[in-house]
Design a protein around this nucleic acid. Structure first.
Lengths: 233, 233
DNA sequence: TGCTGTGAAAGTCTTCACAGCG
DNA sequence: CGCTGTGAAGACTTTCACAGCA
């Protein structure tokens, strides 16, 4: 019942030069972002052995309104039981499916500096289905070893080695000066998406999704929230 | 400094009889988030010696529409010159003022694990006005030293030592299990805001702003963006 | 000419209010 | 009864289109 319309993304798009066909997801952008938080909270509840959950509980926990939670969850189908709430297990399964994390995503890390090293072995990555299959690094004194069973390969071998690894996603944690060039190489290798930690705007690629995590900008958002006493998404 | 702000939040109701006192200095949430990206791009342009900039250029760079850029910047006043564009230096100054990063924010880091260590000395923090004044850590083998001139103090001394440090913000990089309890202690100490890296929903506090950075959720957003990017090939 | 600033329109998201069902 | 699902209203955001000025 949705017309083949333009993407309704709030953050990217807007370029009429893109011949972009239809967009498959019926999920509004803001909703998708909240579903991630809801999923995390549900997994927490599951670990405490809770079997069902009500919209009002999630709402209070996450600082949202109960009607908003219900609207968000209604995107997944009619999963709630009136008078009772939602089944925690079922909701988790449905959310993971919707968010695309019910399977495994083969992932590489590029850049084994301070931040990159901290990200290796970050437990939540693996728990959510992101499997680290290789690490690429420019410094030759760091390559050759394996960390947590993951091989550290020379960045210059990436064109030769990446195609065999069948990789979906890359985590980009290289120095700012190198980020743009590395991103271009990843585009050319056909990577599906990049999580970019470098504080620089990468050129856009039609076939690669990019999510930026700029820690300085997050601090700015915090400062802004303090001054404006707002809550963030 | 801002006068006491009106609560223009999008979630908690608290008072439905809000007669809407229209504080003009308050900018829309989505706009505020984009202004951070715009600022970063402007600083990049400034380093290349560019003196003026047009909305269309920023738009292409950031993947937004030019009219959106103009709307966002119009929030700061009429800073553009018709037929020319915006003065880079002036715009940066105005943006930093608006986002609250024209002064210094005294900041502590709590938790000197892998991630915390990576955050110490992260250059962009200091460049954007976030000054690290102390690090708190539970492991006694790590306390007592200084890192980059910043003292590493025992977490249990925080009630005694924090008040003297005149701190505004905290970066919370402790293990998940400890995060909630540490956050409560920070609330009680009157901290203004917390940048939370623990993958857990913190209880909310009326006087402390919270920004969450959950790296697993960012990966989920990336996966979602990949799945919902319908490319012909 | 070329670009900004902005009213008005279009589009999107959130909240309200209550029907509907276990 | 309690809680979900949802039409309708309202609030907010983006886009369009063009006036206005350097």
């Amino acid at each position: 019942m949705q017309p083949p319309e333009r993407p309704r993304r709030r953050d990217c798009d807007s370029s009429k030069a893109l011949p972009q066909v239809a967009k498959s997801s019926s999920i509004p952008g803001p909703t998708a972002n909240r579903l991630g938080l809801i999923l995390r909270e549900l997994q927490h509840c599951q670990r405490s052995g809770q079997m069902t959950i009500r919209s009002g509980f999630l709402a209070r926990r996450l600082g949202l309104s109960d009607s908003q939670i219900r609207r968000d969850l209604a995107q997944l189908g009619q999963l709630g039981k009136r008078g009772v709430g939602y089944d925690v297990i079922e909701l988790i399964a449905r959310l993971r499916n919707m968010l695309g994390t019910d399977g495994q995503w083969r992932t590489i890390l590029v850049g084994l500096g301070n931040l990159g090293s901290a990200l290796v072995g970050y437990r939540s990555f693996r728990e959510q289905g992101f499997q680290l299959v290789a690490i690429y690094e420019a410094d030759p004194t760091k390559t050759g070893q394996t960390i947590d069973g993951v091989p550290v390969l020379p960045i210059d071998s990436i064109e030769a080695t990446l195609p065999k690894l069948n990789v979906d996603l890359a985590i980009l944690a290289v120095p700012t000066e190198a980020a743009t060039a590395v991103a271009e190489r990843l585009y050319r290798l056909g990577i599906g998406g990049i999580l970019n930690f470098a504080p620089v705007t990468l050129n856009q690629s039609p076939s690669t999704a990019i999510i930026d995590v700029d820690l300085a900008i997050e601090m700015q958002r915090l400062a802004f929230a303090v001054v404006n006493r707002q809550r963030s998404s």
